[in-house]
């Protein structure tokens, strides 16, 4: 089953924003935003990737990054850049000067990290429920949860497969 990722593209220039959104729409569902408050409005738990243009305004990158951390969202964060020579951390830099294919692949990479992070969070919550049932000695309910855990474990394997070790740790442990 192909999963359509949900991406926010936030940039002050509507034509640039819409062009980037058009590149992504074959594989992703895209929400566009033309200001920092609009980006914040669109930030919801089902978002996988939020891309922010520093040109949105002073502190736009920090404001959105803080909102992602403050709301405990599991999406991945990217900074739109015009090249690879600026001082932005390479890991969150998303070059708009790249080819359409490279741009799509970069966003896909961030979305895949978000998918692993979200699935592991879901797995942890279910593990906690199972641990409580174990402690309360409720075997029938625990068996039910165990089956759901096994199914979720398979989804987690699929989510982890495309990511290398560094990306896996970054996905789950980097809180901006």
């Amino acid at each position: 089953m192909t999963v359509r990722h949900l991406v926010i593209v936030g940039s002050e220039d509507p034509s640039t924003t819409d062009e980037l959104a058009a590149v992504l729409r074959d594989t992703c569902t895209v929400r566009t935003a033309y200001s920092t408050p609009e980006v914040l409005d669109r930030l919801e738990p089902d978002v996988d990737v939020v891309l922010v243009d520093p040109g949105l305004g002073e502190d736009s990158v920090e404001t959105v990054r803080d909102a992602v951390a403050g709301r405990e969202l599991d999406c991945q964060f990217g900074v739109l850049s015009t090249g690879t020579d600026d001082r932005t951390d390479d890991d969150i830099q998303v070059s708009v000067a790249a080819s359409e294919r490279d741009f799509r692949e970069r966003v896909e990479q961030l979305a895949t990290r978000a998918r692993y992070r979200k699935t592991l969070e879901e797995y942890y919550e279910l593990v906690q429920a199972s641990a409580e049932l174990h402690a309360e000695d409720l075997p029938a309910q625990r068996d039910q949860v165990q089956r759901r855990l096994e199914a979720l474990g398979r989804r987690l394997d699929d989510a982890a497969a495309p990511l290398d070790a560094e990306a896996l740790f970054r996905a789950v442990l980097d809180d901006g």
Binding site: L120, E121, Y123, Y124, A160, A165, L168, F169, V172, L173
Partner: peptide, 17 residues
């Protein structure tokens, strides 16, 4: 605990490879 759990699970995945 949630963060250590995710570290343990992910490290297990990396070692499996």
């Amino acid at each position: 605990e949630p963060t250590v759990f995710k570290f343990v699970y992910t490290l297990g995945e990396v070692v499996r490879r």
